[in-house]
Amino acid sequence: MKTIVEKLREQLVELFLEKNDLLHEDVVELSQRLDQYILVIQSKMMKKECEQA
């Protein structure tokens, strides 16, 4: 899943450079997709920490 996040992050940077607008619809959409993956990873990490405690 981390590789997906890295690829999405790279795509987001490229898309931003192409559109030159953080509020462009495509940039916002990709950013939101990236956020969803990041939240899943953080949730899994927190779950592991709680289980270890």
Rank of each mutant, 00 (worst) to 15 (best):
E29I: 10
E51N: 11
E18T: 09
L17E: 15
S31M: 08
L12T: 02
E49S: 02
S43H: 10
E25H: 10
V40N: 00
L34T: 04
E25K: 11
D21A: 05
E49T: 00
E6N: 13
I41H: 01
S43Q: 13
L17Q: 15
L17C: 10
M45T: 12
K47C: 03
N20A: 08
Q52N: 13
E25A: 08
V27P: 02
E25P: 09
E51G: 08
E25M: 06
R9L: 05
I41C: 01
K48R: 13
K47T: 05
K2Q: 15
V28D: 02
E14D: 13
E14M: 11
C50T: 11
M46H: 04
Q36V: 08
L17R: 15
R33I: 06
D21I: 05
I4D: 14
E10P: 00
R33D: 10
C50E: 14
Q52F: 11
D35T: 06
V27H: 03
V27M: 02
K48Q: 11
D35W: 04
V40L: 03
L12D: 01
I41W: 00
Q11T: 06
I4G: 04
R9T: 04
T3W: 12
T3H: 13
Q11M: 07
S31T: 07
K2N: 15
M1G: 11
Q52D: 13
E18Q: 10
F16I: 01
A53S: 12
Y37W: 08
K47P: 02
I38V: 14
V5Y: 06
L23H: 11
M1N: 09
C50F: 13
D35Y: 04
H24K: 07
Q36A: 14
D26V: 04
V13P: 00
K47E: 07
A53R: 14
K47W: 03
E6V: 13
E25Q: 12
E29N: 15
K2I: 15
L12H: 02
I4F: 09
Q11Y: 07
E51Y: 10
Q11H: 09
I4P: 03
D35R: 06
E14R: 14
I4R: 11
K19F: 01
S43M: 12
R33W: 04
Q42R: 11
E25I: 09
E6F: 12
L8P: 04
I41R: 01
E29F: 14
A53L: 15
L12I: 02
L30V: 05
E18A: 09
E51S: 13
L34W: 02
V13H: 06
Q11N: 12
Q52Y: 09
Y37G: 01
K44N: 08
T3F: 13
Q36C: 05
E14T: 10
Y37D: 00
Q36D: 11
L23K: 12
I38A: 03
M45S: 13
F16H: 05
R33F: 06
L17H: 14
R33Y: 06
F16W: 04
Q36G: 07
